[in-house]
Structure formats: C-alpha cells, structure tokens
Amino acid sequence: TRVETATETAWISLVTALHLVLGLSAVLGLLLLRKQFPAHYRRLRHALW
C-alpha cells in the first residue's frame, strides 16, 4: 500500500506540473501573439469573449 501511495503522489505532482507548464505556455503564447500580431490578438479576443 505504501508503494501505491508514493505512485499516487508522483502522479499528482506530475499532473500539477503539467498543468502549470501548460498554463504558463498559454500565457506566454498569448503575450507573444499580442506583441507580434495585435490585429490577430484582438480578433481572437472577440471570438473568445
């Protein structure tokens, strides 16, 4: 049972790390898009919101 708990903890930390990386890359991508293609960014924002 101890090994299972350790594996679960590892999976949870892995998933958390993946979510963090995905969130950060999404934010960075949006910032880059905003900087380089303001028109595209505006259109995207209108489409999303």
Rank of each mutant, 00 (worst) to 15 (best):
H40S: 04
L30F: 11
G29Y: 02
T1D: 03
L48R: 05
A26K: 03
A17V: 09
L22C: 00
R34Q: 08
W11I: 05
V15W: 08
L18K: 04
W11Q: 12
A26I: 13
L30S: 08
Y41V: 14
A17H: 00
W49I: 11
L30D: 00
G29R: 00
R34L: 15
S25D: 00
S25V: 11
G23T: 04
G23N: 04
V15K: 13
W49R: 13
L33Y: 14
A47Y: 13
S25I: 10
R42C: 04
A47K: 09
T7I: 08
A6S: 13
Y41H: 03
L32T: 12
L18T: 05
T16I: 13
R42Q: 09
G29V: 12
R45L: 13
H40K: 06
A47Q: 03
Y41D: 02
L33E: 00
V3H: 00
A6V: 04
S13T: 07
T9N: 10
A26D: 01
Q36R: 15
A26R: 02
V21R: 00
A26C: 12
E8A: 03
L20N: 01
H40T: 13
H46W: 06
L44F: 04
T7A: 07
Y41W: 13
K35Y: 15
Q36Y: 13
G29C: 09
S25N: 04
W11Y: 11
R42N: 11
G23H: 00
R2L: 12
A17N: 03
Y41F: 10
K35W: 13
T9D: 07
R2E: 09
A17Q: 01
A26H: 01
L48C: 08
T16Y: 11
A17G: 08
K35I: 10
V27M: 09
R43A: 05
K35T: 14
Y41M: 14
V27E: 00
L33M: 11
G23Y: 02
A6P: 02
R2K: 05
T5W: 02
V27T: 05
G29M: 05
Q36L: 14
L14E: 03
R34G: 14
P38W: 15
S25E: 00
A39Q: 09
S13Y: 11
F37C: 15
L33F: 14
L48V: 10
V27S: 09
A10L: 09
F37V: 15
E4M: 04
E8T: 10
L30R: 05
S13M: 10
A10W: 15
E4W: 00
T1A: 09
L18M: 07
H46P: 06
A26Y: 00
T9R: 03
T1I: 13
L20I: 09
K35A: 11
P38I: 15
R34W: 15
S13D: 08
L22I: 11
T7Q: 12
L14F: 11
H19W: 14
L20D: 01
E4K: 01
E8V: 05
W11K: 09
A47G: 04
E4G: 02
E8D: 08
V21G: 11
L33Q: 00
S13I: 11
S25M: 12
V27L: 11
V21M: 09
L31W: 14
E8G: 10
F37G: 13
P38C: 15
A47D: 08
R34K: 12
Q36C: 15
K35N: 14
T5I: 05
A47P: 04
H19K: 04
T16W: 07
G23K: 04
W11E: 04
V27P: 10
L18C: 10
L18E: 03
V21F: 11
E4D: 04
P38Y: 15
A17L: 10
L22G: 10
A10C: 05
A47W: 09
F37T: 04
I12D: 00
L24T: 01
T9I: 09
R45T: 09
F37Q: 10
R43W: 09
V3M: 03
V21Y: 00
T5C: 01
H40G: 12
G23R: 02
L44A: 03
W11V: 11
L31N: 11
A6Y: 08
A10M: 14
L33T: 10
L18Y: 01
L28K: 01
H40M: 15
W11N: 12
I12T: 13
L44T: 02
T16C: 12
F37A: 14
T7W: 06
L14M: 12
L28F: 13
E4A: 01
V27A: 07
L18W: 02
T1N: 02
P38D: 10
K35L: 10
L28N: 01
H40Y: 15
P38A: 15
V15Y: 06
T7D: 08
L24D: 09
T1K: 07
T9K: 11
R43P: 03
L31V: 14
V3A: 01
L20V: 15
G29Q: 01
Y41E: 04
L28V: 14
L28P: 04
S13V: 08
V15H: 04
W49G: 12
L31I: 13
L48H: 07
Y41L: 15
V3D: 02
W49D: 10
Y41Q: 09
A10F: 10
G29T: 07
A10H: 14
A17D: 01
R2P: 10
R45E: 05
T7N: 10
